[in-house]
Write a protein that binds this DNA or RNA. Structure first.
Length: 800
DNA sequence: AAGGCATGCACTTTA
DNA sequence: AAAGTGCATGCCTTT
């Protein structure tokens, strides 16, 4: 910091020594004569500060990311009829609670079966895009759900589209959860996740989601030996810290009785692909162990909740290798699906009319097409996949076959904390408009045509799916663990042969849709695993471009006025933009990510006191074309491949249709009521709860900086400022996968116990299953109330 | 106290 | 006169 200041001063002094800083007249003369016309190409060297190795790694990670994208395609149900994807809806609070109390059911359904029933397509664009915007306050409920979910679940499952929002809202309001305002604000940042619409079970309205499914055919060979698994897991290194799970529940101990089920439910949702009922049932801990552990965690329901999360986290991690194997299995498709995916994505987006929505925010999530043509899978299976032929009207396109995933790295995605969508719950709108557009003109194949679906294709696909052996023995698990640990240590060396597939004991008749859904969840889990394995990789989900987040700025009135200049944050500008020798700065070509329009802007600085003010000039047209108003923000990226600068104007959804910028520029934080709209002021207001600085852009906090938290090329300052203020972000930084090896202890907050599950007490195999543990939570006589434990750092920031 | 930055405003340039 | 430019001021946050 001091050195930076000194450097700034030094720069100014250097400029002064060069005679640049002089009287105004002299300035103009200089400016007129020395105006530098620096083309984008000249800035390449300055822009890319990554080493070649880093760049290669980034590319490699991108490939891996796209592999995940590609894998997702394999998980798509081949259903020519379309309508594979729609939002899963938990239609009532009872549904939710029933699901949460899933263990009350005799036959615990794998939640993936909740998607078993397919429904007619519910076209996402533009309806889906409008849905978040209309959710308005209700979105706070979704955020609330995220707030109680595990990091992974909050990251991977968006419940904002659920009808259960109302239920959740009721749930939480009736629970008198304190500081829900701030909680929602906090959890807005949790909107960095992928949206995997779920099929709504046909009988979900009957609150009998468990009834129809029986697991008599469970593969009990896949049971978990808790002790063994715990021993296998390298949890002793403390990486699975209790603190890692902090912040997702109210810090106080007055946990509503429904909360633990909610936590569990959220967790289940995010792990339904991998955690089978038998897995859960096979986890047994002695009651004494549970009680002791709970006491060690402070006692009370909160401790139990904490403990449960620890257990769940362990279970989750325990199953990572399963996804890992899946992902490895998909490696053989490396190279085809990304482009296909992107192409389909583009196809659907452009063809779906989503592009016609101007610059209004569409959604926090990009609409990503997923293959629905079974022949695709056949082609993949036969390795006969080829670049698509010329565009054709035959191009597979179905609006219902979208999935909404964050565009990591595509501007929409970035960081460690994945995508940038944030605040969407506040107003329902998404500050990431037209993320799809970022893929425009960068697709390897403009359009894509698939062979007509054939029944044989489906057969091939199913054969492909079912041909994988189900290896789930204990021994195999051990081996998998070992492999996992090894692979985790070399996450980018992921091209391992893997012949194992997760077991599927379902009847073939049911397998198609079920398996597909499971596969989808597996993909989901894969990504989660992937991200947990190395958060840096989050930065790399860039189907085409390698967009590196540079900075962003919440636009002030003076930025969107007719002056045509935008003040840039000094630190970020100096960090990520070319160093300016002269205050005249440089001409900088900014390509609008959305429109691909290249704006010739000027990046310069003003001497200010003994420092500088950095400006982006000639922004008037850009601002006007994007309809940017105060409170909106811009995001600057650089394409790491080309070095080009990219700019994206992000409009903040506004509740009122007046579309007039709020008069007030200050955002007060005093109100305790939730904002009833999504205007910029509220956006900023909520952002302030996370940002200690008014100047720091909100979006940076939750999106890009998060992404950049994992980017080696981004300053730590941006990253660190966020996790400290935001429990989620903090968690994302803190909670790394155990095998990652990187000690996160430095992120452990002093107050939070760095507790491993097994460190709570000597774990013994016992007689309590998780469901019984759940019951324990509600048993008043379990443990004594904690003595004002150390969990004050949970979400204390958001308490006011 | 130091620094960032939003913006007012003086000044210059242009229409 | 309007638009553009650049600096200075002062508020606000951070250190």
């Amino acid at each position: 910091m001091d050195s930076e200041s000194a450097q700034n001063v030094g720069e100014v002094e250097r400029a002064e020594a060069n005679g640049i800083i002089e009287g105004q007249d002299a300035n103009r003369n200089i400016e007129g004569g020395v105006k530098v016309k620096m083309e984008a190409g000249e800035m390449d060297g300055e822009l890319n500060d990554e080493s070649p190795e880093e760049c290669n790694e980034m590319i490699a990670m991108n490939s891996e990311d796209t592999d995940f994208l590609g894998k997702a395609e394999d998980l798509i149900p081949p259903s020519p009829g379309g309508a594979e994807w729609t939002d899963y809806e938990c239609t009532s609070a009872d549904d939710m609670l029933d699901a949460a109390r899933i263990f009350d059911c005799v036959n615990l359904p794998n939640l993936s079966e909740l998607q078993y029933n397919l429904e007619p397509p519910a076209p996402l664009p533009p309806a889906a895009a409008a849905a978040p915007a209309s959710s308005s306050l209700g979105s706070s409920t979704s955020s609330s759900s995220a707030s109680v979910s595990s990091p992974s679940s909050s990251s991977w499952l968006n419940t904002s589209n659920m009808k259960s929002e109302e239920a959740m809202e009721r749930h939480y309001h009736s629970s008198s959860t304190p500081s829900i305002d701030q909680d929602s604000a906090t959890s807005t940042s949790y909107q960095n996740f992928m949206v995997i619409p779920f099929e709504q079970p046909a009988d979900s309205h009957n609150n009998n989601i468990c009834k129809e499914y029986s697991y008599s055919d469970l593969d009990h060979a896949d049971k978990i030996d808790v002790l063994e698994e715990l021993q296998n897991l390298d949890l002793l290194d403390g990486s699975l810290s209790a603190g890692a799970l902090d912040g997702f529940v109210p810090a106080d101990n007055n946990i509503p009785s429904e909360e633990l089920p909610m936590v569990f439910f959220e967790w289940l949702k995010s792990n339904k692909d991998s955690i089978s009922p038998e897995d859960l049932r096979s986890i047994k801990l002695k009651r004494s162990t549970i009680e002791l552990a709970a006491k060690q965690l402070g006692g009370g329901k909160k401790a139990m909740l904490h403990l449960l999360k620890l257990i769940l986290a362990w279970v989750q991690n325990n199953h990572l290798q399963r996804k890992r194997k899946l992902s490895q299995q998909h490696q053989k498709f490396n190279g085809c699906r990304p482009s296909y995916f992107v192409d389909q994505y583009n196809q659907c987006y452009n063809g779906g009319g989503v592009m016609d929505h101007g610059f209004e925010p569409q959604s926090c999530y990009a609409q990503v097409a997923i293959p629905t043509d079974p022949s695709m899978f056949a082609a993949l299976n036969n390795n006969t996949f080829n670049p698509p032929p010329a565009p054709s009207m035959d191009t597979i396109h179905h609006p219902a076959k979208y999935r909404r995933v964050p565009l990591e790295g595509c501007g929409g995605f970035t960081s460690s904390h994945e995508c940038q969508p944030m605040f969407q719950p506040l107003d329902g709108g998404a500050p990431w408009p037209n993320m799809n557009c970022m893929l425009q003109n960068q697709l390897p194949y403009e359009n894509y045509r698939f062979p007509p679906p054939t029944s044989q294709s489906q057969v091939d696909y199913m054969n492909y799916r079912s041909s994988t052996p189900a290896v789930s023995t204990k021994e195999a698990r051990k081996n998998r663990m070992a492999r996992q640990r090894r692979s985790m240590a070399h996450h980018h060396h992921h091209h391992h042969q893997n012949r194992h597939w997760s077991a599927s004991t379902s009847p073939l008749s049911r397998q198609s849709s079920e398996q597909v859904n499971i596969n989808l969840m597996q993909y989901q889990q894969q990504r989660q695993t992937y991200l947990q394995t190395d958060r840096r990789q989050i930065n790399g989900w860039k189907p085409e471009k390698n967009l590196k987040f540079l900075l962003q700025k919440v636009l002030k009135q003076s930025d969107v006025g007719n002056l045509g200049r935008i003040v840039l944050p000094k630190k970020e500008a100096e960090t990520h933009l070319p160093e300016l020798e002269a205050r005249d700065g440089i001409s900088i070509a900014m390509e609008d990510i959305v429109t691909s329009h290249v704006w010739n802007m000027r990046y310069r600085f003003w001497p200010n006191n003994k420092s500088r003010m950095y400006l982006l000039e000639n922004t008037g047209d850009f601002v006007r074309s994007n309809g940017l108003q105060e409170g909106d923000f811009i995001v600057l990226y650089s394409d790491t491949k080309t070095g080009k600068y990219m700019i994206r104007g992000v409009k903040v959804p506004r509740s009122d249709t007046s579309a007039s910028a709020p008069a007030a520029t200050k955002c007060t934080n005093g109100s305790s009521s939730l904002p009833d709209g999504g205007d910029a002021k509220q956006f900023l207001k909520m952002g302030k709860s996370y940002l200690a600085s008014t100047s720091q852009s909100v979006a940076v906090t939750f999106a890009d900086s998060v992404a950049d938290a994992s980017s080696s090329s981004v300053s730590d300052a941006t990253v660190h400022s966020c996790p400290e203020a935001d429990p989620f972000l903090r968690d994302m930084v803190t909670h790394s996968f155990p095998t990652k090896g990187t000690s996160n202890s430095q992120h452990d907050h002093p107050g939070s116990a760095s507790t491993n599950l097994e460190s709570l007490s000597s774990l013994e195999s016992g007689d309590l299953t998780i469901e019984e543990i759940l019951d324990l939570v509600d048993s008043p006589d379990l443990v004594a109330e904690p003595a004002k434990s150390d969990s004050s750092d949970d979400i204390a920031e958001s308490k006011d």
